[in-house]
Design a protein around this nucleic acid. Structure first.
Lengths: 191, 191
DNA sequence: TCAAGTGATGGGACTTGGTCTCATCAACCG
DNA sequence: CGGTTGATGAGACCAAGTCCCATCACTTGA
C-alpha cells in the first residue's frame, strides 16, 4: 500500500478500533495502529493529537450542532425546549455506521481510565457549549447550567438506548429528555 | 535534605503546585517536582500514579464521605435530601489550608486540558458514587442519576463560592443545592 | 513537455511520562 | 547486635508525543 491511498483518517480509526478490541487499549502502540493502516506514527499524529483522540473524532461538529440547535429554537422556547432542539440537531451525526461501531467503541472506552477521562471531558464540552448558547438567549447562568446538565444526561441515555434499539435518534433523544426533566420535576415533591 | 524527612507526600504536593504556578504545567517535569521536594522521580511515582494526580489527592476520601452521607440520611428522606446530606458530609474535608491553595490549584487545572480531563473524571466519580448510594436506598436509576448530577452541579458552585467568600462549607453547599433544585423545578414551567 | 510548487507522508532524533528491578539506608525489634 | 521492614535512590527501559527535514505524488503554468 503506497502513498496517496485515500481516507487515511478513516483507515486509522478502523485500525485503532480493531486493535483496541482485539488486544486492549494499553497493549496497542500508536505505531501499530499506523502500521495496520499502512501509515507511520508521524502521520498518525498529524491526524489525531494523541492516542485517545482516534476514538473521539467528529465531536467538534457536534459542538456546533448543539449550539446551532439552541440558537435556532423559537424565541418563545424555554431552556429545556431549546435543549431539546439541540439534541434533535445532532441526530444527523448518528449514522448507521456509527451505530455499528458504537458498542465496540463503548466497551473500549469503559475499559480504560484515560479514555473515560477523555469521554468525561467531551461531555463537559457538550454541556459548556449548551450553557453558552443558552446564555446568549437570555437564560440565567444557573438556569443554563441546570438545563445543560439535564441535556447531557438525556443525551447519554439516548445514545445508549439508540445503540441497543436503533430507530430515529431524534425521537429517542426527545423521549429521553422528557423522562429526565419529568424526573427532575418529581424530585422536588418527594421530600 | 536526607532520607526520612517526614511528609514526603505533602512536600511533593506543595512543590508541584508552586512549580505549576510559576512556570506552567507543561513546562514542569516530574523529575523537577521531585527534586524541589528533595526526592527523586521514583519516589514521586510511589506517591502518585501520574503527573496529574498530585493535584487531585484525597478524593477517595470524598467518595466515601459522599456515599456515607447518603447512606446515613433518614429513611424518610427523598433523593435530594440524601444528596444534601452527602454534600454536608464532605464539608470536613474543606479545610482552611485547602481554601488557601484552592485558587492557584483551580488556575492550574483550567490552564491545561489533561488536568481538566482528570477533573471531569473526578466529578463523574462523585456522581457515580452518589448514584450507587442512592440506588441502595431504593431510588430509581433515573432518579438517582438526576439527583446526583444536580448534586455535582451544586457541589461545583458551592466550591467556587466557598473559595471566594469562605464560611462554613456545609452551609454554602446547602444553599447551592437549594438554588439548583429550585431552578430545576422552575425549568419545567417555563415553556 | 517539463520545471516549479504544494501538500501529505516517511523517517529518525529527541524529550518526557511512566514502569520495573535491584541496591541502599534508616528505624524498629528481639 | 543482627535481622527485618519500609521507604528511598539509581538506572535501564518502553511508549507517547514533538520536531525537523527529506521524499514522493500530484498540480499548475509556461
Amino acid at each position: 500500500m503506497g502513498r496517496w491511498e485515500p481516507d487515511a483518517r478513516d483507515r486509522l480509526v478502523r485500525a485503532a478500533l480493531d486493535l483496541f478490541s482485539e488486544q486492549g487499549y494499553e497493549n496497542t502502540a500508536v505505531a501499530q495502529i499506523a502500521e495496520r493502516a499502512g501509515l507511520t506514527k508521524s502521520t498518525y499524529f498529524r491526524h489525531f493529537r494523541d492516542k485517545r483522540e482516534v476514538l473521539f473524532g467528529g465531536q467538534d461538529e457536534i459542538l456546533e450542532l448543539l449550539a446551532g440547535g439552541i440558537a435556532g429554537a423559537p424565541a418563545s422556547a424555554g431552556a429545556l425546549v431549546a435543549v431539546e432542539a439541540a439534541l434533535v440537531a445532532i441526530a444527523v451525526t448518528f449514522t448507521e455506521e456509527r451505530r455499528a461501531n458504537g458498542p465496540r467503541r463503548l466497551a473500549v472506552i469503559a475499559s480504560n481510565d484515560e479514555l473515560r477521562e477523555r469521554d468525561a471531558l467531551k461531555m463537559t464540552g457538550f454541556a459548556a457549549a449548551m450553557v453558552d448558547a443558552l446564555k446568549r438567549r437570555g437564560v440565567s447562568e444557573l438556569g443554563a447550567e441546570v438545563a445543560a446538565e439535564l441535556g447531557v444526561l438525556a443525551l447519554r441515555r439516548a445514545y445508549s438506548r439508540w445503540l441497543e434499539a436503533g430507530g430515529d435518534f431524534a425521537e429517542v433523544a426527545r423521549r429521553a429528555l422528557e423522562e429526565v426533566s419529568a424526573t427532575a420535576a418529581a424530585l422536588e415533591r418527594a421530600e
